[in-house]
């Protein structure tokens, strides 16, 4: 898993990645120094919970991906098996390319979960 996360972190524009359980506890990560694993884990779980509740009320089914753009950068949240993959992205990144690569890597991670 660590290898896949390292590959994600090498994608141009990505500045960190973490895989967390549904409870928000970190499973694996490849983050820059100064990034706090447990904070990111808690935030990922909190966002996913808010999104799932809203989607359920809106009868929109399960969450498949969430991209959030802020004034200082973006994050991509992908459900992978029973876990969540949170990727931190720089403001100037090519999001289209990153999303394609992330989908591939998420499939790799899902395969690792099921093996």
């Amino acid at each position: 898993m660590k290898d896949v996360l390292r590959k994600i972190n090498k994608i141009y524009g990505v500045r960190g990645v973490i895989l967390v359980g549904a409870d928000g506890l970190p499973i694996a990560s490849d983050l820059a120094e100064g990034e706090d694993e447990s904070t990111l884990g808690a935030v990922a779980s909190s966002v996913a919970s808010a999104l799932s509740g809203t989607l359920q009320r809106l009868a929109q089914g399960q969450l498949t991906r969430f991209v959030m753009n802020g004034s200082g950068g973006s994050v991509v949240l992908l459900p992978v098996a029973s876990a969540l993959l949170l990727t931190l992205v720089r403001k100037d990144a090519n999001m289209g390319m990153i999303l394609i690569e992330l989908d591939e890597k998420a499939t790799e991670l899902a395969a690792l979960f099921s093996s």
Binding site: A42, V43, R65, F66, M68, G70, S71, G73, V75
Partner: peptide, 16 residues
Amino acid sequence: GLTLGEFEEGIIDSEQ
């Protein structure tokens, strides 16, 4: 919490 600054936009993909 993610030091992204002010929220600007979110794109939520779901099964529907």
